[in-house]
Nucleic acid binder design. Sequence first.
DNA 1: TTGAAAGCGCTAACAC
DNA 2: GTGTTAGCGCTTTCAA
Lengths: 350, 350
Amino acid sequence: MATRINALGTASKRPTILDVAAACGVSPATVSNVLAEKRHIAESTRALVLEKVRELGYVASATARGLRMSRTWSIGVVVGDIANPFNPEVVRGIEETLWAKKNSLILCNTDSVSERKVAYLQNLIDKHVDGLILISQSLTQKEANALDMSRLPPLVTINRFSEVIEGDHVTVQNEGGVRELMQHLFDLGHQRIAFIKGMTSSTSAKERYDAYRSSMKKMGFPVDRNFVIQGDYTMESGVEAANKLLELPGLPTAIVAANDAMAIGVLGVLRDRGVSVPNDISVAGFDDIFMARHPLIALTTVEQPKYETGATAARLLLERIEDGPETAVRRVTLDATLKIRGTTGHAKPD
Amino acid sequence: MATRINALGTASKRPTILDVAAACGVSPATVSNVLAEKRHIAESTRALVLEKVRELGYVASATARGLRMSRTWSIGVVVGDIANPFNPEVVRGIEETLWAKKNSLILCNTDSVSERKVAYLQNLIDKHVDGLILISQSLTQKEANALDMSRLPPLVTINRFSEVIEGDHVTVQNEGGVRELMQHLFDLGHQRIAFIKGMTSSTSAKERYDAYRSSMKKMGFPVDRNFVIQGDYTMESGVEAANKLLELPGLPTAIVAANDAMAIGVLGVLRDRGVSVPNDISVAGFDDIFMARHPLIALTTVEQPKYETGATAARLLLERIEDGPETAVRRVTLDATLKIRGTTGHAKPD
DNA sequence: TTGAAAGCGCTAACAC
DNA sequence: GTGTTAGCGCTTTCAA
């Protein structure tokens, strides 16, 4: 007859390394060494220790070990908003990689609010995390000054590169991806192409915008000032941008958004206003978030390998923690892939 | 001229409480008490300590304090897959609540694989987290046996209630929500209503299915065996279920899925097959995930307050940690709200 | 091959 | 009001 498990916090005291040592008639140092496989131990004692460890259900206290070794085996992951569809897949990649090396992931949502970011980072530094990963978040000089940077652990940035920080970095081929996308639109006969930008503080947003401009320029197509709208990577800003664009006297034949969330916002507006996609206007994004793939959305976009991005960042961080500050800074740029779906088609003739 | 911040892990040694004490000419205990605001300290020394603390940039080591107080101020959150759109919003709710009380969130993805769940839980127990939250995950007796339950910290379950575990629990009005949804369909003239179930191991899935059956029964409508398909809450299983339903000789006029992910999978299939929604078939889900609200999806569904669900679970857990195992087990059931959108319409006449 | 002992940085009990 | 001291549970020299 099984008894129900009490999950109310009646945890019994755990055995310590002393308990195991006493049970075996050896010193705690020996137990420690058996478990850490550090120095050679007689096979007989080794077996005995292992047996008692299992018998007592002994597990070393991560806290005590952390105090002694000044490590926490935990990594702070700072993200604007975990509910933003781009992020969970990146976080998964990080998490899998950390788990494989027995590190914990401490998740922090900053809401992209500067004060909150600073507070969270300080908290993580104070908590003595072994490393930090910033997803699409960066640090301004001002924010950095507000922090106690002298105690900063190794930090890896994803997507947003900061001049202020000298550290490892993972990003995607933003220019190449957008250029490929633009070429796709040119091939379909588009010339009047609008662009919805991300925040200029984001290097990835800047690169995507630059690639849009240079692609247009290379084709000899003018960039109408009104065709460049400032967004902030949220779906709402995509909605606003679309509304602005639709007010214009001369409509664009295609709208490219610097990320999928904004592009999907645009699609919603066009749908509500009865504008046919891609017959009247083509729409494209960047990221290839989960939602973009659904048949009802079918957004043409540029895929950023999100899981791999996260996994790479975690790998770089773990290696940095291992190797120390001596080895050179590393910047990894992953490939972007154009995904042609249903929202792009031939340009509507004037 | 600003120097760049080195993020490679050249952190300098932090000052300890002894450094502060020495700088002030007081004992470490006094410093500790000033910071903890435990016992009364002369205003003059208090001010001095505070000044030196700021001057040296002293922050107490969470590790040392944790060892001493046997607390970690961190909470393990175990989730099947953070990339599953239901979860991020719940996690946000948890995270905000924990942050307000200075607790950290350790995120764990189990992929809903039993072994992995057990391994993760054991890891969290070993890490001495102060509490645990399981989102839509439960523990079978077998899994529980594989764990060292004697050291289990307080645990709160979300959505999936386990008979095996005696602990606090947060869920939503599953029966009420589905009944309301069914009534909406009945009002539209639907009688041939198919249902895509979740895993029977999930109490919420079971409750939603039961409500479907009892609603049908109450109306005197037969439940065709073929109209009940087993899914697993993933979009893919919704796709499979829709394909099965469309093979049937007599089609249903409406398809209700036990969650939005499956319903959205159904919508994709219907779209691909040229079945008009809601003209030919109505579709509805449960949860009201972000994607369901988009104009191109516009899924009729029952909203589960996800953020609030997470926030409530975190609050219950923190209170449980504070109050200890003595106070009675609490079960909170949040309200579900019917959201009528574009995927439900009048039943197609035979 | 093993043990003894110091100490990681903190808090709490006990003194004064 | 404040100081002294004993650990929390572990790893790691240094000795044997």
